[in-house]
Every structure is written in C-alpha cells, then in structure tokens.
Design a protein around this nucleic acid. Structure first.
Length: 895
RNA sequence: GGGCGCGUAGCUCAGUGGGAGAGCACUACGUUGACAUCGUAGGGGUCGGCAGUUCAAUCCUGCCCGCGCCCACCA
C-alpha cells in the first residue's frame, strides 16, 4: 500500500534526499545511463557544458541540465543509443583564485613563494578533494549522464588534444605570437580576452589640459582626457587633417607639461573636430585607438605602467611607484598649479572591468599568443548559413553572425599557472620551438643550432576556453580515432545559455569544423537565463541567489525540474519562484494519490490489454485524451517547447485524469457490473502507466518509484521505467464522438455546480430542516428561482444528445431540489446585478456580431464557415439574452 | 550608434488573424472514502498607446511610450 505522499512526513518520514538517492543508485547500478548498450540503434549524443570544477549548482545549471536530461531520457525511451557525456572544466582563473584564497586563509605562503610546481600540485589536490561537488549535485537533480565516461579538461587525453591542436594551428600559421596591446588585469596579473572584459557605465570627469606649443610663447593646444595619469605617457597630439584651427600646427611640437617631452602634432582622421577641442592627446602604450594612431604616425610607444598598474621608471621621479589613481590626483593637482588646467567637466562613460577580478583593466603592451580567429570563423559562419547547425530559437544566429563576422584575434595566453602550459620552448637567442614535448623541442633545437642548448618553456598557460572548444571531440577520444568518436560525432544538440555563445559555441564551431570537418552539433538550443523573483540576475553580491539544492531538499528534484521545464518558454528570462516549485510538488502529490486510488481499487494492468478495445464511453474518452496528450508531449520535446509539453501533462494528469476520469469511474468500480468494472480497472491502470512514462523525462524520481511500486502488487515490470519504451499512438485511439460527448457532460456538471455554489448550499441535513419550516410564500419564491436555475442549465444543454443527458438533467433536478428550501438566503440584489451584467455582456456581443454580419465586405469575403460560425454565435447569444431577460423579470416578480 | 527581446488578471507568465487563458494570490463554501501538499465555485483584464493592412487585429506592419539585455564607441 502506498503512503499518503511521496516523501515528507506522511510519506513514511523519508526525506526527498533519501528516496531520490536510493532511486538514483538503482539506475546507476543497472547501468541504465551507460552508452553503447544498443549497438543497433541510432546514437543520440549530448555533451554537457562542462561546469567549472569550482562550481556550485546554481539555478542556471539546474535549468541547463534539466533540459538536457529531459531530452536524454526522452530519446533513451525512444530507443536511441544515448550518450550524455559529462565532465568538468579546469577553469583556469577561477580555480587558481579559489586555491590562492584558501592558501591565504590558511595563512600559508603565497602562490609565488610556493613556486609553480608545488602550487599546481596543490591545485590538483584541491581538485581531488572538492572538484567533484558540482557533479554530485547534478546527480541530485537526476541527471542521467554516462558517468563512466566522465572527463576533465586537464585529463591526459584531453591535454593531448590541446597540444595537438595548438601545434597544428601553429604550423598552419593560425596561432602566432605578437606584441600588441592586450586587456591586462592588474589584479590577477594576466592578459584576458575581449570577452572577459565588462564595460561598465561610470560617472567620471573630463579634464581639459593646455599643452604649450613649442616655440610659440603663450600659445596652447587644449586636449581632454578621462585619464589624466596617462598624459605622462603621451607621445603626440592628433588633430584632424581638415581642421582649419590646427592646420598650421601640424608638424610642430607641443611640450608635455610635467615631463617636458616634445609631442609631435600629427594630422590623423581619428581626431574628431566635433569632439572637445578637436585635438586629442595620444598615448600609444595605454589606449587601443592611440596605439593605432601612433603606429600610423610613427610616434613612440612609452609604457608607463608596471604589471600592477603602478607607475614605472618612465615617468618623472615624483610619480614613480604611485598607484594609477593616486597619480591621477597628483597630475591634476600639478597641472592646476602650473596653470594648465583649463576645466573639468562631469562625464559619463564606460570603463572596462575584469569579469573575475572586478578591477579596471589596463590596455598594456605585452607579448601574447593569438589565434587567427578570422580564418577559423569563415567555415563556422558558412555552416550556419547553410543550416548545418541551427539555433533554436533561430534569432540567436543573428547574434552569432554579428560577432563572427567582426571577430578579432583571440588572445589565448594567460599568465597563470593552472592550465595547459603552452607547448613552446625558447632557445638562448629567443628562437621558438613549438613541439609536443620538451624532448621533441630539444631535438629540434639541436637541429637548428647544431648542438644541444638550454631551452626554457613558455611560462604561460592557455585560456580555459581553448580546451573547452575541443570538448565535443576531445571527450570522445580525439585525436585517437575511437569508435565512440566515429559513432557520436557530430553530436546532436548543444544546450546552453546565450551568455556563452561567443565564449564557447562559436569556438566549438570553429575548432570542430577545422579539425573534424564537420559541425560539432546540428542544433544549439539556447535557453533563458534564470533570474530571481525580482527579475534581477542572480548574484551573490545582491544576495538574491536561490539555491536549487535547497529547493530540491524541500520539495524534491522532480518539483524543481518540472518548474524549470514549465517555465522554459523561449525568448524570455525565467524567474524562479519558490511558490511555483511548491505548486509542482503538490502536482507530484496529486499524481501519487491518483496512483494510490488506483491501487486501492485494484486497478492493475492486464498483460494483453488493448486500450482501443474498450467499450465504455468514459474509457474511450480517456484514451483519446491520453493520446492527445501523448502527441502534445512528444511534439513539445521534439520542438524544444518544454513548457508546452509540461503544461499538457499537468492538465491531463490533474484536470482530466484526477478531476474527471477518477470521479467518473467511481460508480463503475463500486458497482455490480463486473464487465464494466474489469474494463475500467484495466483502463485506469493502463492510463496511469502512460502518465508515468510521459512524465518520466520531467519527473524521473516519483515516476520511477510509482512504476516499481505499482509493479509489486500485480504483474512484475519487465524493466525500470527509465528504460521503458516511449508509447506509440495506436489506430483509433482518438474517438471524437466520445470526446465531444464527455466534454458536454463536463460542461453541464460544471454549470450545475456553479449554480449550486452561488446558492450557497449548506449540508444536506440542514436543508431537510429548512424544508420542514419553509412557509408557502418562500416556497413559491423558490419555485420561481428554480426556473432561473434551470434556464442557466438549459443554456448549456441546448443541443441534442444521447445517453447522458437524461441522467444529467436528473442531476440538475436533484441538485436544484436541494436548493429549494434556501429562498431565504438568496441575495436578490446580488442575483439581479449578476443578471444585469450578463445581459449587458451578451448584448454587447450581439451588437458586435450584428455589425460584423451587416458588413458587406465581410459577407462577400469571409470564408463561409466563418460566416456560419458568426451566425450561430449570434443565435446562441440571442437565445441567452431572452432567457436572461425572462429570468430578470421573474426575479422582479419575486421581489 | 548597431542589434535582440519584453509590455496580456493583484503577482509570475502562457497563447492565438475569427468566441481573452493558466498557476499563485484573493473571496465563499466544503474533510469519516486517493489526495487539506485537497475539493467546488467566484471576483478580477478597453491584451502599453496611436495609426495602418484586413471582411476581421491582443496577434501582422509602422510610429510612439516604458523596461531589459548584447555588441561597438566614448579625447
């Protein structure tokens, strides 16, 4: 016998965590998630977006993995040979930061004191101890990954893939080293890519300085800047070539205050005559635009910053070693005292911040490794143009194209220790040897120099996204030609949020096409971002993080999953609300109790049961409704419309199966017609099974549990639900006549209930008392009122019908007779108001239809069936109006 | 500056070229029978505004208002 609920106090006192981990263990033990067990079936493959090893499950992960798991479980049930490839990402910066923080907290030595080798060892130790948490958390969600194939981006195999790709691209000239301005993070002391820079709107100032012109006493040129401290690195001033104000100054020099350097005044289109004074100071070493201007005009590039953004030896003595912001104040002050500060304006502009360090990024001149993304992007653009890879929703391809068509060189070197070290070695004269190993590099160096030399390996590691870009094939064994690679590449669907289209999707496309000559996946499903109830992006600093694990603890994984699926409509952010999760927990309870009802009534499935053979109308009807639900759920998942699938299931289970079917079959189950009873029992059991199957991808735990438990008391199950085949609709399952008939019955009953409820009917016993005491006058009033009630019911029943109406009409009469004695509690005013309102509503509708039907154009151009519909509607409305008016006048008669 | 998206019930959101929907919240009534993690019923919306296309617009088009996000630029 089933308990009252699945989990919780009335569920045998077991927590969701206990029950769910038991079920999960069973799945794993039976290797249900293992790929390769159906060699004759079509493969279906998803690679997980590898969470950072430092990750802790947040709502975004929960959504992302719920969707993947729905797809995976669905396709597994449809018989495909499914591989959901799991793993984690080494997350260079994030992980290094976590471990460094830990060292700091322990009061141990810093990373640099410790030395590279020891530090990396320490990170590995950390990974072994705590790097698995996120995957354990995915298991709690029910994720059915093939854990036997778990990978890590720094595994030997994946690292080999990284080296191979690096060397191949280097040899093709698509990876190169270059000295240029990069986004430098002065806190983390590493270069970062454009994508890791966040532009943040900030209130700042615009300082206007006067630079004296050399040889022309008293003449100045005014320049403006948002960053006064950079003036110490100025090497020129630019004006527009067509700007008459400055034409005579081009070729002359300005004198840089505080420093005394001569600044060449150059003509360059970059200077915008409309902006400020039209003259702009040029600091090639510390501004991306200025760098280009400097290059074009042969200006010096003077780097005035240290790695930590303090000022270096290139500036006059008083400024040396100062922090950039202290230097800013001092520069302004000094210029002011020199009388060269023209003015200060308030100015709102964007300032670049590091997305991890949250400090202001400096453009800084360094040697870094770059990928020639433009060349790699070309095939990746074409593949999407051709439709080899489609975005769902399609709109995102626009974003993808936009970025890919304007792609910049990708800076892939990072000045970190945790990551794939760049396989480049340098000879004593700086000659570069890119090779798979130091031994190999040595050999090449020997060839080059003619003798053995001392080599030093490049200190840098690769951007984490470099290895992520290879994930769809590196996890399958590439560069080895494994059978998994042959079978599962290309993969089927990539599921991710739009925030990493550039970081990851685009780069996987580039690498996949370059090294496998095929797209890594044929579909990318972009889901919404999860936000909190206020619509804010969840973040720790805002304190609005909704912990999915807490929700799982409180309401079960199924409830959270169903919530996310039901809210996964495309094109909008998801706001996760606890109430909603609770509501879907209740849905699970409802299902559980429907099963409990079936169990109590001995509704057990029959081995040879053919659902299309049923004879009772109610059973024909539920079969049809079930089939319609099956269609909706299947189509919903196939089309990535998870909310539609979830809604269809919710409605069917609760509002069709529980609300109506279960109520309708109670008489049969308690009756004496053994044949009807047997059919109904078998049907109820069969429908319940269909529900469990269809619901399983969404709510795997509760459905699996019910599947097992319901199998105990009757026919044993052949296999676990997780491996049970998805249903196929049989011929004749949808019987339109039965559905129409039952729809009408349901409408009728609802109407009667509505009337009853409005009459405020108390318990039957009370009614009996009232009847005894009722006087003639009130009885008379009630009779009149009864007519009105009947009118309302007839309104709904104004159609010819079979079998049911007699009984239904009887029901109305029964119900109404109960109401009879209640004349005294009827609020006549309220009833009058209600009638008046309905009359005006109906009148309005009639007017509208009338107008439409008298429209010549409508009559000549609208399709015939539409005209007929409208005429029918008008007739119905007029009938209704008549009745309502009658009722109103009778009501007036009572009063 | 370029692009994307959103505005529908008190709240959160579905949805459709031809009769406005769900969940939650709210109100009333109801618990010895699957389920109070429940049931029955009810109130509540000129579908952001204006114009256009159409026989017909909440839906398509344009403009406007409000909100959000992405990219680029910013002396």
């Amino acid at each position: 016998m089933l308990e009252k609920t699945f989990g919780g106090q009335s569920g045998g006192g077991q927590t969701y965590r206990e029950i769910e981990s038991r079920i999960y263990a069973n799945w794993e033990q039976s290797e249900a998630f293992k790929a390769g067990k159906r060699p004759d079936a079509d493969p279906y493959t998803i690679v997980i977006p590898p969470p950072n090893v430092t990750g802790r499950l947040h709502a975004g992960h929960a959504l992302n993995n719920t969707i993947q798991d729905i797809l995976i479980r669905f396709e597994r049930m449809r018989g495909r040979d499914v591989l959901w490839q799991p793993g984690t990402d080494h997350a260079g910066i994030a992980t290094q930061m976590v471990v460094e923080r830990q060292l700091e907290a322990e009061g141990n030595m810093s990373r640099r004191d410790m030395g590279r080798e020891q530090f990396v060892e320490r990170v590995w130790k950390w990974k072994a101890e705590s790097g698995n948490m996120i995957l354990e958390q995915l298991k709690r969600l029910g994720a059915s990954c093939d854990w036997s194939r778990e990978r890590f981006t720094m595994d030997a195999g994946l690292s080999a893939a990284v080296i191979k790709v690096f060397i191949a691209l280097y040899e093709e000239g698509l990876i190169y080293k270059d000295k240029r301005l990069v986004n430098w993070d002065p806190k983390l002391l590493t270069a970062i890519s454009d994508l890791e820079v966040e532009q943040i709107e900030t209130d700042g100032h615009l300082w206007h300085f006067n630079y004296p012109i050399e040889g022309e006493d008293g003449r100045f040129i005014t320049v403006a800047t948002t960053r006064p401290e950079t003036m110490l690195g100025d090497t020129g001033v630019a004006v527009h070539p067509e700007d008459d104000r400055y034409k005579d100054l081009v070729g002359k020099n300005a004198l840089l205050p505080l420093v005394g350097r001569r600044l060449k005044i150059v003509a360059d289109e970059y200077a915008d005559p409309e902006q400020g004074s039209g003259a702009v100071k040029i600091t090639p070493a510390h501004d991306f635009n200025d760098f280009e201007v400097g290059k074009r005009n042969g200006l010096d590039t003077i780097n005035i910053l240290n790695a930590d953004a303090s000022l270096n030896q290139e500036v006059p003595e008083p400024y040396r070693g100062m922090d950039r912001y202290d230097a800013r104040e001092k520069v302004v002050e000094d210029l002011k005292s020199a009388g060269l500060l023209e003015k200060i304006e308030d100015h709102r502009h964007t300032v670049p911040y590091g997305d991890r360090s949250h400090v202001v990024i400096e453009p800084w001149l360094t040697d870094q490794w770059y990928v020639d993304a433009e060349v790699l992007a070309k095939p990746a653009i074409e593949a999407v143009e051709r439709g080899d890879m489609v975005f769902v929703p399609k709109n995102w391809e626009k974003t993808y194209f936009e970025w890919m068509r304007n792609i910049q060189p990708w800076c892939i070197s990072r000045q970190l220790w945790w990551g794939h070290r760049i396989p480049a070695w340098y000879g004593p004269d700086g000659e570069t040897f890119v090779a798979p190993s130091e031994t190999e590099a040595q050999a090449r160096a020997q060839d080059h120099y003619g003798k053995p030399v001392q080599l030093t390996q490049d200190e840098d590691v690769l951007d984490t996204w470099f290895s992520s870009a290879l994930w769809p094939f590196s996890t399958l064994g590439w560069p080895e030609e494994t059978k998994e690679l042959a079978r599962h590449y290309k993969t089927d669907v990539l599921v991710t949020g739009f925030d990493i289209i550039f970081f990851w999707v685009a780069r996987m496309m580039m690498m996949g096409l370059h090294f496998k000559q095929e797209v890594p996946f044929h579909t990318t499903y972009i889901h919404a971002l999860v936000r909190d109830e206020q619509g804010q992006k969840m973040s720790k600093s805002k304190g609005n993080v909704m912990d999915p694990l807490e929700l799982v603890d409180d309401f079960g994984a199924d409830a959270l999953r169903f919530t996310l699926a039901a809210m996964a409509a495309q094109g909008r952010d998801i706001k996760l609300s606890r109430d909603r999760v609770e509501g879907y927990r209740n849905f699970g309870t409802k299902l559980w109790n429907a099963a409990r009802f079936c169990e109590m009534n001995e509704c057990v499935r029959q081995d040879d049961f053919d659902p299309s053979s049923v004879s009772l109308i109610v059973n024909k009807w539920i079969l049809g409704e079930c089939a319609k639900t099956l269609r909706a759920v299947t189509a919903g998942i196939e089309d990535f419309k998870f909310n539609e699938a979830a809604t269809a299931l919710y409605r069917f289970v609760w509002h069709v199966f529980c609300d109506w079917y279960v109520e309708f079959i109670k008489p049969s189950l308690n009756g004496v017609d053994e044949e009807a009873k047997a059919e109904t029992r078998a049907m109820a059991a069969w429908v319940l099974d269909q529900i469990l199957i269809m619901l399983h991808p969404f709510m795997p735990f509760i459905t699996e549990e019910l599947w097992q438990r319901l199998g105990e008391s009757a026919l044993p199950r052949n296999e676990m639900l997780v491996l049970t085949p998805w249903p196929e609709e049989g011929p004749g399952w949808i019987d339109d006549a039965a559905i129409e008939e039952m729809d009408w019955v349901i409408r009728l009953i609802s109407e009667v209930r509505s009337v009853r409820s409005e009459m405020n009917v108390p318990a039957a016993a009370k009614i009996q008392l009232l009847i005894k005491d009722a006087d003639t006058a009130s009885l008379q009033r009630l009779e009149t009122h009864l007519d009105m009630i009947m009118d309302r019911a007839r309104l709904e029943s104004a159609r010819p019908t079979t079998a049911v109406p007699e009984g239904a009409i009887q029901t109305i009469l029964d119900e109404a007779s109960l109401i009879l004695p209640l004349a005294n509690v009827i609020d006549l005013e309220k009833e009058r108001a209600r009638l008046a309102k309905e009359i005006s509503k109906v009148t309005g509708e009639i007017d509208k239809i009338e107008k439409k039907l008298s429209n010549d154009k409508f009559m000549s151009r609208a399709p015939q069936h539409v005209i007929e519909e409208q005429q029918e509607r008008r007739a119905e409305a007029e009938q209704a109006k008549t009745r309502l008016n009658d009722a109103l006048s009778r009501l007036d008669g009572i009063a």
